[in-house]
Computed example of a mutant assay.
Amino acid sequence: MKQKPYLSLDDVKRIAAAAEAEALKNNWPVTIAIVDDGGHLLWLQRGDNAAATSAVIAPAKAKTAALGRRDSKVYEDIVNNGRTAFLSVPLEGMLEGGVPVMVDGFCVGAVGVSGVKSNEDAQIAKAGIAALG
């Protein structure tokens, strides 16, 4: 039987702390969501002054990135480049700001961020993931 890595609670806490630090450094009010490889929520943190809707959007971005094993921006780009039929795909969160966590070629989860510009959301997610080393 094959084995694969997974996100431990300590890993999740490290990602969350680093993502929060990036958001605070830039004074960005966001929600940070971390999911496992199946898109199941492991962590949700809504920062002070983050919009209520960000608590729905961040986990959706994370789930999309985990299930697709790629940045959620890929799906946004597909739609923006004219393939509107892709909107019928049963995924939510097809906006930039969801980033998969890849370890040894395996997707072990993803981070989704919502609350500021999409590229800034992605910046926060990537800063969190970078804490894993």
Rank of each mutant, 00 (worst) to 15 (best):
Glu76Phe: 05
Pro29Phe: 06
Ser8Phe: 04
Ala17Ile: 11
Ile15Gln: 06
Ala122Asn: 10
Ile124His: 04
Tyr6Gln: 14
Val113Glu: 07
Arg69Tyr: 05
Pro100Asp: 06
Leu24Val: 15
Val103Glu: 13
Gly128Trp: 03
Cys107Arg: 02
Met1Thr: 11
Trp43Glu: 15
Tyr75Asn: 02
Asp71Gln: 12
Ser88Thr: 15
Ile34Val: 14
Gly38Asn: 12
Asn27Cys: 12
Ala33Arg: 07
Ala58Phe: 03
Ser54Leu: 04
Ser8Asn: 01
Thr84Trp: 12
Ile57Glu: 00
Ile124Tyr: 10
Lys63Gly: 09
Ile129Gly: 00
Ala125Glu: 05
Ser72Asn: 06
Gly128Arg: 02
Gln3Glu: 14
Arg70Ala: 10
Val74Leu: 09
Asp121Ser: 07
Thr64His: 07
Asp11Ile: 04
Val89Asn: 10
Lys117Gln: 15
Pro5Glu: 05
Ser114His: 04
Gln3Phe: 12
Tyr6Trp: 10
Ile57Lys: 00
Val99Glu: 10
Arg14Cys: 10
Arg69Val: 03
Thr84Cys: 09
Val116Glu: 13
Val108Arg: 02
Lys2Asn: 09
Gly128Lys: 04
Asn27Tyr: 13
Val89Leu: 14
Asp104Lys: 10
Ala110Ser: 08
Asn81Asp: 12
Tyr75Phe: 15
Arg46Asn: 04
Pro29Gly: 09
Ser54Cys: 08
Asn27Arg: 15
Cys107Val: 11
Val56Pro: 03
Ile129Tyr: 01
Gly82Asn: 11
Phe86Met: 04
Arg14Met: 12
Ala125Met: 08
Asn81His: 12
Ala122Val: 07
Val111Asp: 02
Val35Thr: 10
Val56Gln: 14
Val99Ala: 10
Leu67Cys: 02
Pro29Tyr: 04
Ala122Met: 06
Leu7Gln: 03
Ala58Gly: 03
Ala23Leu: 05
Val12His: 04
Val74His: 14
Lys126Glu: 14
Val74Met: 08
Ala23Cys: 07
Ala17Arg: 11
Ala60Asn: 12
Ala33His: 00
Leu7Gly: 01
Ala17Phe: 09
Ala130Ser: 13
Leu87Tyr: 11
Gly112His: 06
Val101Lys: 03
Val30Cys: 13
